[in-house]
Structures are given as C-alpha cells and as structure tokens.
C-alpha cells in the first residue's frame, strides 16, 4: 500500500545488493512474504500494515532498535540483515508472547516458525495470562472468537477508514486488556454492522469466521484439502465484484474475493459475501 515511484534505490539485504523503486518496503525488497523468509502475522495484502505484531523485525545498520520490515521503506545504502541473533531473539519472543496468550491453532506458519526460532510458548506456565474467552455467536452469518485475536488491527481498518467506513469495531481498552469491540461490547445486531464480512476476509488467525465454517469445524466436517475455489462474479448489482467460491462436496461453504481484484480489493457487501445460499437452497 506504500506509494512507490520509479526512482530506484539500491540497498544491501543479507549481503546482497538489491535495487528497487523508492517507497518499496524492506519486506518487498527482500522478496515479499513468499520469498524473503521473513515471518509476518499482522501483515495483510489489502491493508496498510499496522506493524503491531513485530514478528517481521529486521536489523538495519545504524538503527538503535530493530525495524519492522513490513512497513519501513527502503533508503539508499541501507544495510539490512533479515537474520541475526537479535532478529531471531525478537521473533522468538514475539512468537512466544502470542503463542502463550492467544490460540494460534488456525494461524498459518506458526508451527514452522516456532520450530525455526526455537519458540516455546509453553515455558510461561499454565498461569500465564491469556485472552481466552467464550466465542461470540450473535448472528447467523459469522462468529467472533477473540481467543484467537492477535490484535493485528486489520479488521478494524477494513471496517473503518481503509475500506468499509462502517466503524463498527475499534480497539477498546488499553494494554493487555486491549480488545476489538463494538461500543460497550453490544452484540453485532445491536451495532452498525452491515455484515460485509470484510473483517473476516482480512483476519489472519481464524478469529473471525463464517458460521458455515465454524459449524463444520465443530462437527469435524471441514476439510479444506477437499475444497475447490472457483473465481466468478457476483450475481447481485451491476458492480461486478469478483468472488471466490469455496466449494466442498458440491456446496458453497465460504466466499472470499481476490485481494488483487481492481474492483473489490478483496471486499464485498453482505449480498456478495453471504448471499450465495439462493443457489443451493432446496
């Protein structure tokens, strides 16, 4: 999301010289999430990085502290190390801090990173404070399981000024008690929620989930490996939103939108996100 221009910047990453456009982030310059090997948690493709999780920290020569690669733009002659003792320690601790306080069981990559950085969330003991709490089920379309919330702020930004502008949720409270909340924690039907599900789309940890998926997981029938994903176009109004239909056993179980769609940027409205039932109601 950072603006880029064509002026090239040359820097050194892990001893290798790299030339990228001005405005590129260190993470992008290092090859992005897939190539760089830098772990990310709060980073999302359609949201300006909040860099709150601090797992993507890298070492930049001359900087007193580590820097978040997901959002720090490159500078000429920067010397970056994506792995070092300091970097690895910070990543290990972030993984432990989150792993010991949040349910990361549905978060991609965590298991591998824990192994890679030697993170042992269990060492904080059974008494370590967590964010465990009951799942919020207050409507038919999606559930909120904040025991899985790492406070990446993506749902807040998607609901707020980056996309949906409904501002139904924000971070409330402070410190470890910070949490995603409607005003006074009112239920979604009592809030301004329009059920666009754009928060679900950006949630990296499974804290926000289609009710269909939640129920199937509870019943043990959710089989992601057996699902197909077909890209098509929404059948409602004339905007032409791109849909990805997740189908298991001939049934649509979930709808997403491609983050790189120039029409939706991964966003949909309630009809596109949840209005698929009409094709399979009998």
């Amino acid at each position: 999301m950072t603006g880029t221009t064509d002026t090239p910047v040359t820097l050194t990453i892990d001893g290798r010289e790299v030339t990228v456009p001005t405005g590129t982030t260190i993470l992008q310059a290092a090859g992005g999430r897939s190539e760089s090997g830098i772990p990310t948690l709060c980073y999302g493709e359609t949201i300006t990085p909040k860099n709150a999780c601090r797992v993507c920290m890298v070492e930049v020569e001359g900087s007193r502290t580590l820097v978040p690669s997901c959002s720090r733009p490159v500078e000429p002659d920067m010397v970056v190390r994506t792995r070092s003792e300091r970097v690895d320690h910070a990543r290990k601790m972030v993984l432990e801090f989150l792993g010991s306080s949040v349910d990361l069981s549905l978060t991609d990559g965590v298991e591998e990173w824990n192994a890679e950085y030697g993170a042992a969330p269990g060492r904080y003991g059974a008494d370590a404070a967590t964010v465990a709490q009951p799942v919020k089920v207050d409507n038919d379309l999606y559930v909120r399981d904040y025991s899985k919330c790492i406070l990446c702020y993506q749902c807040v930004d998607a609901c707020g000024d980056q996309w949906q502008h409904s501002f139904v949720i924000d971070v409330a409270g402070r410190g470890f008690a910070s949490h995603i909340s409607t005003e006074n924690d009112v239920s979604l039907p009592d809030s301004a929620c329009v059920y666009c599900g754009n928060c679900i789309q950006v949630c990296p940890t499974g804290a926000l989930m289609f009710t269909t998926e939640f129920d199937m997981r509870a019943a043990g029938t959710w089989r992601e490996d057996d699902q197909t994903v077909t890209e098509t176009v929404c059948a409602f109004c004339g905007v032409g939103c791109n849909l990805e239909l997740h189908v298991q056993d001939g049934t649509i179980v979930k709808v997403t939108s491609p983050p790189d769609s120039p029409i939706t940027h991964g966003n949909l409205c309630i009809k596109g996100r949840f209005g698929f039932q009409h094709a399979q109601n009998t």
């Binding site: 909040k50 860099n51 709150a52 999780c53 601090r54 797992v55 910070a90 601790m93 972030v94 801090f97 989150l98 010991s100 306080s101 904080y124 003991g125 008494d127 370590a128 404070a129 790492i150 406070l151 971070v171 409270g173 402070r174 410190g175 470890f176 008690a177 910070s178």
Partner: peptide, 24 residues
C-alpha cells in the same frame, strides 16, 4: 503493564510476562 497502550506485541504481552516473572 498498566500504561502499555497495547498496540505492539512485545510491549503488550512483554510487560505482562515481565510482571509475572517478577511475581514468581
């Protein structure tokens, strides 16, 4: 622990884990 704003993980959780270790 009280005054951490809660935005970043190292501080939000770190200040809690720090206090827990001291209490232990």
């Amino acid at each position: 622990r009280d005054e951490s704003c809660g935005q970043c993980v190292p501080c939000r959780v770190g200040t809690v884990r720090q206090e827990e270790a001291i209490e232990r």
